[in-house]
Write a protein that binds this DNA or RNA. Sequence first.
DNA 1: CTGGATCCAGGCCGATACTG
DNA 2: CAGTATCGGCCTGGATCCAG
Lengths: 127, 127
Amino acid sequence: MTRGFDADCLATREILNRVGDKWSVLVIVILGDGMRRFNDLKRSIDGISQRMLTLTLRSLERDGLVKRTVHPTNPPSVDYELTPFGRTLLAPVAELALWAQRHRPEVQRARDAYERAEKGTGRAGKR
Amino acid sequence: MTRGFDADCLATREILNRVGDKWSVLVIVILGDGMRRFNDLKRSIDGISQRMLTLTLRSLERDGLVKRTVHPTNPPSVDYELTPFGRTLLAPVAELALWAQRHRPEVQRARDAYERAEKGTGRAGKR
DNA sequence: CTGGATCCAGGCCGATACTG
DNA sequence: CAGTATCGGCCTGGATCCAG
């Protein structure tokens, strides 16, 4: 538990920084359902700019989590899908997703309570 | 699978944004070992500024994940520990941490391969 | 349809100095 | 010891325009 502890934490932080950005998880979860095309993804996510979708997909492809397939048709189309490696990430992410879904109200309540308590105890309370 | 899909994704993204910042996971994992004092944490993490440690702890406290206890001694000392609720997050995070530790080399290899391939296929390759 | 390039705003985070 | 306040840089991410 003491050996490599820092290194492990660093590795964890590295992964979370990769996956914890604004869109990666969304893309991973959606691609968990199967192969999708670019604009298909874009429409599914709704709110993402094509820039961020491109960057996110590139980053995931770069790390070997997503496979990109270009079909030389006219007009051209590109498929994206999780690699087997990417699928191994799906389980832990789903775990966290489940936690998020189950505990969101609790977090919300805690947050509200904190705001209220803040006013009573004379804390700054600058929002 | 279709109902509440967007909402679930949003919840997931929300949690990941909370936990996916630069230091939260580190703090959670360390506090998973037991109660710690402020400067104790600061020394454990090494690289964090007192500012970021404060902000991170505040954020976690706000969401009900961490409990803060002030001892009115001289000099004053403050203990931080995970709440029972915070402990429920420990498991999924540990899951992801394990994934990170196990697959870091693979990610690194994929990244290297991507860089190399990039040069062969005439891609931009601007690093 | 699938992107690349550029411009620009806002937030995150670090360094430093100061307080109780 | 345990913070708070302020300043400033960097990076993320959005909008828009352009190209294959």
